[in-house]
Amino acid sequence: MKRVVTTQLPRPRTLIHPGRFNPVRIQSLRSSKGRHVRLALLPGVSLFDGLVKPLAEMGITSASTTILGGYFEGVQYCVAPPDQQGQAVIAYSKPVPAGRTYMIFGNATLGTSMNGSPLVHCHAAIRTESGEVKGGHILTDTCIVSRDPVPVLVTSLDEFELRQAYDPETNIALLQPYKETTNG
């Protein structure tokens, strides 16, 4: 079964992860006010640089963004099949080249990686060069904005920050919210 339509209520599956169960299931923080920025990703820059640089200049290092559609060159994406090595429940696949691509809708989270550099985690629905509609984890540094600017709505995460940290339960590094903030 890959895809099935049923009248019977499906039973959700509970998977076992390699690490110890963390009793905290929702790690959340809030800021008292939303701050928004409308950004244009400029032609010729990567999705990564187009997001990270202008926001860094404004003092924003943690944000949730919506990519409002646009053309990109050299798009590569990963899908998430089971981890053959058994280190985690799933592992990202090798990058799949999609060529000149229309990004239909994307969400990208900006945070800080474990080595202190900016990190962008992006998932998107895309129409690939061959015309197929696909979806997955986008490699934002190879993804170059095509001829026209791509609009992005940014919700800045103030009063806390997102940092990549090792998660023992899933045995992978994940973005998590922390109280300290560098957003100016």
Binding site: M1, R3, V4, V5, T6, P81, F105, G106, N107, A124
Partner: peptide, 20 residues
């Protein structure tokens, strides 16, 4: 959900959320 009250199931793992 479907319009006639059925369920569309997509098997993973993982099924990635690419738009929400």
């Amino acid at each position: 959900g479907t319009i006639d009250g059925k369920y569309l199931q997509i098997q993973g793992p993982a099924v990635e959320i690419v738009s929400l």
